[in-house]
Design a binder for these strands. Sequence first.
DNA 1: TTTAAATTAGACCCTTTGGTTCAATTTGGA
DNA 2: TCCAAATTGAACCAAAGGGTCTAATTTAAA
Lengths: 224, 224
Amino acid sequence: MSKSEDQVNTKTVRAFSPKTQKRREKALQEKRTRIMDAALSLFAKNGVNGTTVEQVSELANVSKSNLLYYFKSKEGLYLSVITHLLDVWLTPLQSFSAEQDPIETLSDYIKVKLEMSRDNPAESKLFCMEVVQGAPLLIKELETPLKTLLDAKSAVIIEWIEAGKLKPVDPIHLIFSIWAITQHYADFSVQIKAVTGKDLSDPAFFESTLSDIQHIILGGLKPA
Amino acid sequence: MSKSEDQVNTKTVRAFSPKTQKRREKALQEKRTRIMDAALSLFAKNGVNGTTVEQVSELANVSKSNLLYYFKSKEGLYLSVITHLLDVWLTPLQSFSAEQDPIETLSDYIKVKLEMSRDNPAESKLFCMEVVQGAPLLIKELETPLKTLLDAKSAVIIEWIEAGKLKPVDPIHLIFSIWAITQHYADFSVQIKAVTGKDLSDPAFFESTLSDIQHIILGGLKPA
DNA sequence: TTTAAATTAGACCCTTTGGTTCAATTTGGA
DNA sequence: TCCAAATTGAACCAAAGGGTCTAATTTAAA
């Protein structure tokens, strides 16, 4: 809508000792986080349009008034949630790095991503819904920061291939495949549970799923 | 809500010659389809809650009144759409059958699924959103018909493995992986387009994507 | 032409919901 | 104790949207 600062009510606390001010802001930040967490889980479950501000406030244990005191509007709240989400979401790929053994690196990456699906299913689902619906709020982030990151990581994979450490694959499709499969276990957990009776919170199921995925994706990539 | 027939207004045409009646019903059915198509694309793009009955009626080129004459309620419309959707969606797996070469069969299946992602992206997206949100309307269908189907197909894969035609994998995870990746190209098309600049409607991109996916998934499954 | 079904426009109603306003109360540090 | 910030509850407003109803019009088969 208007300027992006408008989405959040950043109350500046004045006339306090630095120590106190710090403590205060921390408390405020915690409450903001609490609200955003509540919003995240409801948005993921019912969609943004299917969630009322009141529901969020109840789940966060604050009054509706108070919520609107922290966030200017529902849209502002959603934007805060989704922006923060993307940060968290892309972090693991960052650490996906240079000159280790490719199979091992990719194995680890799959593991980290699957752990994220297990530990942050709501994040995964909300991200999924946003992108499925055209990512109106994230499109800019996808076109530049994400693309840049992907290009960098692609280059690493290409190096591996050229060094004969990995069979030839298009790096982009490889990364998409890893994302698709690992996120699938969060996003489609209902379907998976309906069919297998289990989900990633079951440790044994997590382990077998992880090793199967690693096997499927990496099995054909080991150099001859 | 109440009985399931209530979701749809099935006008029974009386006192017409059989021929005429047939023609009529066909026309009605076509219109119903037109409305459902419109609903599908809007629901997929904006979510059910983000779509108004009026928008659907406009896209389908009928009046709101007329739409409500065909479908008792928005929920009834959605239920019709989603039910029909599941039928279409699972069809390819049916034909996934017995004693051909596993690699070839799986290759074909991947191709069919990727074609569906290319040709019916809205179906894929709506299915995705419904499942992500807990599949309240589909859960029964997932727990029984889908599970039954999956069990049957798993058995086929197990046979392949036991016959030494395929390396050992958990069939369920294999199938999930295929679904995850192929559907990803429809559901996350915005992200893919943001990164690669292309989508499946580009023939060259389709072909290279297909062969990469086949390579990634099946590369490690060929028996030694 | 007759008749029933199909279709439309539009008024209308009711509920939901995002957001505002405000007065009152609580909280915690100075 | 004093004060500003934090928090709440409640009334309230306006817009949106699902759904009903009705009167009028069109369509097409008999």
